[in-house]
Structure formats: C-alpha cells, structure tokens
Computed example of a mutant assay.
Amino acid sequence: MSGSNSSSPGYGSDARTGEAATPEPLNFAVHSLPSPVLPRAQARHGRLKMLLVLLVCAAPVIASYVTYYLIRPQGGTNHGVLIQPQQPFPDLGALPLTDLQGASVAPAALKGQWLLVTVAGGACDALCERQLYLQRQLREALGKNRSRVDRVWLIDDKAAVRPELLPALQGALVLRAPREALAGWLQAAPGQSLAAHFHVVDPLGNYMMRFPAPSDASAIKHDLEKLLRASANWDPAGR
C-alpha cells in the first residue's frame, strides 16, 4: 500500500542503495526482580512457630534429662539406698511364693505396681508390728498416689499369722517365701536383717531400693514421692 511501511521491524532496504538492510538483533533486557520483603510481624510469627516445633521435638529429651539428673533418686542425696545393679524378680522356681492358703503365686503377678515390702516371721514380733503399721501409714500419706503402691508382707517362715493382725492387713499382699530364697534376692545392710528394712520394688519387677533402719517415716515418704513423680509419665495407677 502506498505511503505505508509494511516491513517488519528490523528489516527493509537501505534508502540510498536499495539493498536489503541487515536485520538488527533483538535485545532482551533482564531486570532484577524485587526481593520479597515479609512484614516484620509475619516474620516474627514464622520464627515463633519454628521455635515451638523445635521445642516440641526436643521436649522428650529434655524431660528425660530432667528426670534422670534432677528427680531420680541418687545414692547419697536421699534417705533410701539404691540397689546397684537392680535385681529383677526371680522366677517361681527361685522364689516360690504362696498365699496364706498355700496356693502358688508367680512373682511376675506382682508386677505393675510399686511395692513397699517388709519381711518378718508369721509370729510378728514388736519390730514387725511397727513396720506393718508404718507401712500402712506411709501408703496412706501418699494421698492420690497411694493407688500406685502396694503393701507387701513376705513371711519368711511357716509360723501362723496371729489373728489379731489380720484386720490391719486388709488391702495388703501377705505371701510366704523361704528365707534362703529371699536372701538371694533382697539385700540387707551389713550386720542387719532383711526385717530391719523396707524394700522397694518398681512396677517392672526390679528390686531397686531399701530404706535403712531404724525407719524414718518422713524421709521414706519424701523418697517415695520423688519416685512416684519421676515415674508418673509411664506408670499409670492400678495393675
């Protein structure tokens, strides 16, 4: 069409020579894009969420260290003496337990609870009576946690239990075990008998602590409370 330029940009002829002009290369200029800038409040919120996620992930590790180093009873700082290494429940052959009617009881049946154990003959002398009374009082003093602790009296002879003791034994586990079998599992302090101590067995069936004689009720209660706090996350009440 006359008067119009139908050539594509960058092409055409030289007006003076009539020769075709050399095509001009196309240039693409790339400009830097603006960096996204988050509002301060949004950035702060994101960092806070990341910190919370990290804390949640690390919480079990932190809790285990706190429990082990600060809550778990350590020999020398508590009244009770830790048994090292802990002594697991022997099997029925090594620790033949029977109830007062003579029926066999498997030691494994006692697992699932903290056990506060005393040892004495069936005749139950003055020391035995004191230990049984204190054992009951200690459990009651634990308040809402008392359902996590069982009282156990292990009778190490064949003597009959005096009838007047039976009312005080309501709720306790009263079992017979040979003295030599108990001596192979429980440990007394040098120069003392098993009957002089309270013995503690954990819910997994490990004999792990004894309390020195004579018994100090307030110190024993303090140690039991620490044990129950330290195990609260894995030891539910009841068997």
Rank of each mutant, 00 (worst) to 15 (best):
residue 52 L to G: 15
residue 80 G to T: 04
residue 119 V to R: 01
residue 155 I to Y: 02
residue 135 Q to H: 09
residue 11 Y to F: 12
residue 89 F to K: 01
residue 30 V to N: 03
residue 163 P to L: 03
residue 158 K to W: 01
residue 87 Q to N: 07
residue 184 G to Q: 03
residue 120 A to R: 05
residue 207 Y to K: 00
residue 140 E to W: 13
residue 181 A to K: 09
residue 66 V to T: 11
residue 45 H to T: 02
residue 204 L to M: 13
residue 215 S to Y: 08
residue 48 L to R: 02
residue 231 S to I: 02
residue 122 G to E: 07
residue 25 P to H: 08
residue 179 R to S: 15
residue 43 A to H: 07
residue 51 L to A: 14
residue 131 Q to P: 07
residue 71 I to G: 00
residue 170 Q to S: 15
residue 235 D to T: 10
residue 127 L to Q: 00
residue 66 V to K: 04
residue 212 P to C: 08
residue 92 L to R: 10
residue 46 G to Q: 12
residue 203 P to E: 08
residue 16 R to T: 14
residue 10 G to Q: 02
residue 11 Y to R: 06
residue 79 H to P: 01
residue 34 P to S: 08
residue 146 R to L: 12
residue 30 V to H: 03
residue 179 R to P: 13
residue 236 P to V: 10
residue 40 R to T: 15
residue 195 A to C: 12
residue 55 L to Q: 09
residue 39 P to S: 15
residue 67 T to N: 11
residue 181 A to I: 10
residue 194 L to E: 02
residue 99 D to I: 11
residue 159 A to E: 07
residue 104 S to C: 14
residue 66 V to S: 06
residue 229 R to S: 13
residue 146 R to Q: 14
residue 35 S to C: 01
residue 131 Q to A: 05
residue 163 P to C: 03
residue 129 E to H: 06
residue 101 Q to Y: 06
residue 177 A to I: 08
residue 49 K to T: 15
residue 26 L to V: 15
residue 239 R to P: 15
residue 161 V to K: 02
residue 72 R to P: 13
residue 170 Q to W: 11
residue 161 V to H: 04
residue 209 M to D: 00
residue 124 C to D: 07
residue 126 A to L: 06
residue 135 Q to G: 07
residue 12 G to Q: 05
residue 8 S to L: 14
residue 173 L to W: 07
residue 104 S to H: 15
residue 175 L to A: 05
residue 114 W to Y: 04
residue 220 I to P: 05
residue 13 S to R: 11
residue 20 A to V: 10
residue 77 T to D: 15
residue 75 G to M: 06
residue 143 G to D: 09
residue 138 L to C: 08
residue 165 L to F: 04
residue 211 F to R: 01
residue 46 G to F: 13
residue 44 R to G: 09
residue 170 Q to G: 14
residue 49 K to S: 13
residue 12 G to T: 13
residue 185 W to G: 07
residue 168 A to T: 09
residue 93 G to V: 00
residue 119 V to S: 01
residue 155 I to P: 11
residue 138 L to T: 04
residue 210 R to H: 04
residue 105 V to E: 05
residue 102 G to H: 07
residue 17 T to W: 06
residue 141 A to I: 08
residue 35 S to G: 00
residue 41 A to F: 03
residue 24 E to R: 15
residue 119 V to H: 01
residue 110 L to Q: 04
residue 106 A to W: 09
residue 125 D to R: 07
residue 110 L to M: 09
residue 223 D to K: 02
residue 144 K to R: 12
residue 183 A to D: 10
residue 64 S to A: 15
residue 82 L to M: 07
residue 113 Q to R: 10
residue 170 Q to M: 13
residue 142 L to M: 12
residue 94 A to R: 10
residue 150 D to E: 05
residue 85 P to L: 10
residue 130 R to S: 12
residue 16 R to I: 14
residue 37 V to T: 13
residue 149 V to N: 04
residue 111 K to V: 09
residue 111 K to Y: 10
residue 26 L to S: 13
residue 44 R to A: 12
residue 168 A to Y: 06
residue 34 P to N: 03
residue 15 A to R: 02
residue 85 P to I: 09
residue 201 V to M: 01
residue 164 E to W: 01
residue 193 S to K: 10
residue 163 P to Y: 00
residue 229 R to H: 11
residue 146 R to P: 06
residue 151 R to M: 05
residue 137 Q to P: 07
residue 33 L to V: 08
residue 82 L to T: 00
residue 50 M to N: 15
residue 154 L to D: 00
